[in-house]
């Protein structure tokens, strides 16, 4: 197993109290596998990713419990320097907004080459040559001429390609992409996603794709982990989820995709709002919004992750009912 996250808990200390951003999240990714982590804003997707990468802002964030096993080694027990050496070299991250995530005052060539200079002790010249190669690799036209350009001189799609090139520079074993296409035009989204999927196959990397775009997920993911209020509520192979969701929240998400054959009809949405993480509801955190809610759902203990089938689990007491419909 490449990455195995077990029972991860992350707290944020704020003025109003302790926010439990991640509440026992667990999932795994294998070599060459793509896991899509799905969920609304505030569900803890990005915080989980940051905890795995080791770039969580601490304070205010704090990992209170859990294990992050990377090739069997618990990253949370490593020292700061050991952790740093793994970042970039063995696991890398692609961020959402490439314009703000690239340094505005350094050329893209410098920022790409930095990976080789820091992790591989490359000379300045060597680093620049590798930067040009990388830009070619992600199909940026006229890479040689553009290597000294600055981020603001590129289009949104090109910038995101540069982010991808930077993450893949040292051919890491695991890449976490945090909503890599959200900030892009729809036409460019597909190109960037295709490029990412292609490179992932080529390097046989594990890929964690954080998104709320169900359309993207169906095309590229092998497995899905659905997050709600800091927990994984469903974890399953991608086709099972689309065919027969085992959690009412997943079902709601799928139903809320606008469909062409329902043209003129009402758009379906999950009613209510995601819970305030300062006061997560007792029992199943989804119960106030759940159409199938029963009395037992309103009280602790929370529903555990039930084994639903081969490599499938759901945190719903009534998964059989949900799946059977």
């Amino acid at each position: 197993m490449l990455l195995d996250v077990q029972d991860l808990h992350v707290d944020f200390r704020t003025r109003d109290g302790v926010v439990n951003a991640v509440n026992g999240a667990g999932f795994s990714v294998d070599e060459g596998e793509t896991l899509a982590v799905l969920g609304e804003s505030g569900s803890g997707k990005s915080v989980t990713a940051q905890a795995v990468m080791g770039i969580l802002d601490t304070p205010p964030g704090r990992i209170t419990h859990g294990r992050v096993l990377f090739r069997g080694r618990d990253l949370l027990t490593l020292g700061r320097e050991e952790r740093r050496r793994i970042r970039g070299e063995r696991m890398a991250m692609i961020f959402q907004d490439a314009l703000s995530s690239l340094n505005p005052v350094l050329s893209v060539g410098y920022q790409l080459g930095e990976m080789f200079r820091v992790h591989r002790d490359a000379s300045r010249k060597e680093a620049k040559a590798r930067a040009v190669e990388l830009m070619d690799r992600v199909r940026i036209p006229a890479a040689r001429e553009r290597v000294n350009d600055y981020p603001h001189q590129f289009s949104g799609g090109m910038r995101q390609r540069i982010m991808i090139a930077m993450a893949l520079a040292l051919e890491p074993e695991l890449v976490i992409a945090d909503e890599p296409t959200t900030a892009l035009d729809v036409t460019v989204q597909a190109q960037v996603m295709d490029l990412l999927a292609e490179l992932q196959r080529e390097y046989r990397m594990g890929l964690i794709l954080i998104t709320h775009d169900l359309g993207v997920v169906a095309d590229v993911a092998d497995k899905i982990a659905v997050m709600y209020a800091g927990r994984i509520v469903e974890h399953a192979p991608v086709h099972d989820v689309y065919k027969r969701p085992a959690h009412p929240y997943t079902k709601g998400l799928l139903e809320s995709i606008p469909r062409l054959d329902h043209k003129g009809g009402e758009l379906l949405a999950i009613k209510g709002l995601p819970p305030n993480l300062l006061h997560v509801p007792a029992g199943c955190p989804f119960h106030p919004r759940c159409p199938q809610v029963r009395e037992v759902c309103r009280h602790d203990p929370r529903p555990p992750l039930y084994e639903v089938g081969e490599g499938r689990s759901s945190a719903c007491h009534f998964w059989k009912e949900t799946i059977g419909e």
Partner: peptide, 16 residues
């Protein structure tokens, strides 16, 4: 800033 987070995610030493 986001680009500082990126720099940390790249595994750059703190000084750099």
């Amino acid at each position: 800033a986001d680009y500082i987070r990126t720099a940390i995610a790249k595994g750059l030493p703190r000084r750099r």
